[in-house]
Design a binder for these strands. Structure first.
Lengths: 212, 212
DNA sequence: AGTCAATGTAAACAATGACAACATTTATGT
DNA sequence: ACATAAATGTTGTCATTGTTTACATTGACT
């Protein structure tokens, strides 16, 4: 039935519409029951139309993951912009933002880090935005390092330690493994605060007292 | 053609054979390209035979995840048994074991924590063995707490902080996100040591000096 | 008007998860 | 022994899905 009104044969921005529909469907059905055909149906196009914009299903999933990394990268930059002169607050805010994003979008988070996309052959733009997110964290760590906040360890090592801690908490919560202990938004924030507090106390420069 | 030799009609232990075949296939093709039919073919049975042992594909995947949690729980207990009188060594060893398992079996790790199984309606035996793994860590933390190693925080909070850190490092490495910085087994061990060192320095009791 | 690339559609195909009906083996009760 | 039931594996089949191929529509540029 090619009975679409004349001005709707071509969708305005089908690529974005497909990504949006796929994100909704991902949340509704989970990664295993997300079908390209249903995504196309939701976007109101034929089930082969997506292939004009994505090589295959994998490419669409990568695009969704890229959305997640973009959010993360933007959040990092916002944490820096919020307190340009306070690297400690930057770090605390970024940790909280990281966990909150993971809790808010658990499916996308698992797509980003859960191995569903495979470990190689990822599109260049995904790598790029992923690096941007980590780069924001590196920058925050470096800011604190230059302010003498942290122990004399190289920035990369400090960043990996910080990233691991916050990332682990995020993954555990978003996977529901802490359901018994983290039930609501307040619990999330509280846990994030706890982790970053212990973390800071572990990496901070010895000559500094307890933070505020 | 139901003309199979008399002793091969019944497999013997098809359930375990299916799990084994599925684990191999999972590693070969990744979670998205794992098909029940191929698993059955590898096990040398018809493509519907698995349904005698698993309700559906999800159930088989859960069984694989349970294998992973069992390994983790066993590793925790082994860390305790190895140094019954040294909670600090128990913690360091368990952290290292956690990361090593994740690196050795990245696909199973992502199955365990990556959200591919959904966040609810998980079989009871999976929950059970999962709790056993976390219980081992709790026990290790409690051992150290009773020895006065850690700050005066409740055991559960300390355990969640420790778990988050180690878990995060494990997930990041097994997802290949640290490929540029962690290339071989030595790097893995080094990173695990780095994380646990900073972690301990963050949670340890103030009245204690540097460990060993 | 005519051309052409971009975009959407339609038809076809192989692979997959799942189910129902059937066959075979093993265990159990008499 | 023998019947009967339960467990296990097989076969045939169906709807759904990802993907490819060929075709149709649109708008921009000449």
């Amino acid at each position: 039935m090619p009975k679409k009104s004349k001005d709707s044969y071509h969708h305005g921005d089908l690529r974005q519409a497909l990504i949006d529909a796929a994100i909704v469907l991902l949340r509704e059905r989970g990664i295993n029951d997300l079908s390209l055909r249903e995504v196309a149906k939701r976007a109101g196009v034929s089930h082969t139309a997506p292939y004009r914009h994505f090589n295959d299903k994998h490419a669409l999933l990568c695009a969704i993951a890229a959305v997640g990394f973009k959010r993360l990268a933007d959040a990092m930059q916002q944490c820096i912009a919020q307190d340009p002169q306070n690297p400690l607050k930057q770090l605390q805010a970024s940790g909280l933002a990281y966990v909150r994003l993971a809790v808010q979008y658990p499916d996308i988070t698992h797509l980003m880090f859960g191995g569903a996309l495979g470990y190689e052959n990822l599109p260049a733009d995904l790598i790029e935005v992923s690096d941007a997110a980590f780069g924001g964290l590196l920058q925050i760590i470096d800011n604190g390092k230059q302010a003498g906040l942290y122990q004399d360890e190289d920035t990369m090592s400090l960043a990996l330690v910080v990233w691991s801690s916050v990332h682990g908490l995020s993954m555990l919560i978003s996977a529901g493994k802490l359901q018994d202990h983290v039930k609501n938004q307040d619990d999330v924030d509280c846990m994030a605060e706890l982790v970053t507090r212990f973390l800071l106390s572990g990496i901070k420069s010895d000559k500094l007292g307890a933070p505020e």
